[in-house]
Design a protein around this nucleic acid. Sequence first.
DNA 1: CTATCAACATACTAAGTAGATAGGTAAAAG
DNA 2: CTTTTACCTATCTACTTAGTATGTTGATAG
Lengths: 158, 158
Amino acid sequence: MLISTKGRYAVRIMIDLAENSDGGYVAMKNVADRQGISLKYIERIVPLLTKAGLIEGVHGKGGGYRLCREPQYISVAEIVTAAEGSIAPVACLVSGAKPCERKNVCRTVKMWQGAYELLENYFKGITIYDLMLKEDSDKGYIKSEIKKDTGGLNVWQL
Amino acid sequence: MLISTKGRYAVRIMIDLAENSDGGYVAMKNVADRQGISLKYIERIVPLLTKAGLIEGVHGKGGGYRLCREPQYISVAEIVTAAEGSIAPVACLVSGAKPCERKNVCRTVKMWQGAYELLENYFKGITIYDLMLKEDSDKGYIKSEIKKDTGGLNVWQL
DNA sequence: CTATCAACATACTAAGTAGATAGGTAAAAG
DNA sequence: CTTTTACCTATCTACTTAGTATGTTGATAG
């Protein structure tokens, strides 16, 4: 599987923070309740997002987490990469992987590379803002302000 | 990881069969030697390709395997799906997966679905013929005869 | 008919990953 | 000083990955 629960939960946590913050901090206990994810499991995903500079937390009463940037400037690619470590579809394309000795002979590596770029560009083109529920519109999804080139596809939007 | 060694080896085995057959059968011992993959490991990948109707084998001396179809009619999508079981990027999209109870609420499923379709179409558009080494051309890759819609991308071709 | 070759089948293993849970410590607010 | 919440470390079970080992079955060559 390319994206495990870790990556999927990470996206949902980010959406939840975006939707349920008035600019202040949101406690992970509340996120856990709303999302139906164990708090303990959330607590081991969240440090990955903090280290990636996507969220920040404060201790104690009234504490919690909040996004470091506006939702329209946080891409799904960033979140999933932070949570999963990589979104490379094959092991030999993970950055830091030991170089394949058949690389010069390999007739398939370009194909995998193409799949990787396709995925990366797709997820770079989707932001948290795109995934938020917005009351000011009943037309469903609104496109984010920074719109990346997805090859004119936008398959994900129905 | 979306595609493990099983899927990657499967593609390489198929290419090897396409390149090293004169229409007759090719012994997996030879494929193993050429590809540098353990024969024993090959022997547990190959039944998956047979079951999928991609290759067929005959026992005994002079036996081996051969493709059931011409290389230009065998897509990478078929091979990888046969070897891996699925190329769904997330668990909830694997066919036969237990239906998610948050499906109606889920703000992310469309996005995963889009990634799935992107990948599937990409790999459907690449055939064994596209990946073969062809002596009659020094321009590198030649496009397959059946050309699927890949959204005009063809990222994989350099 | 029998030796050989190669597909086909089953069992096993060592290492790693997935998906959590348990039990704490540290800091901030009231 | 108690409550709240982030933060840290360890443990656990089940499953998957990437193989190896040891055969059996079936076809062919001699």
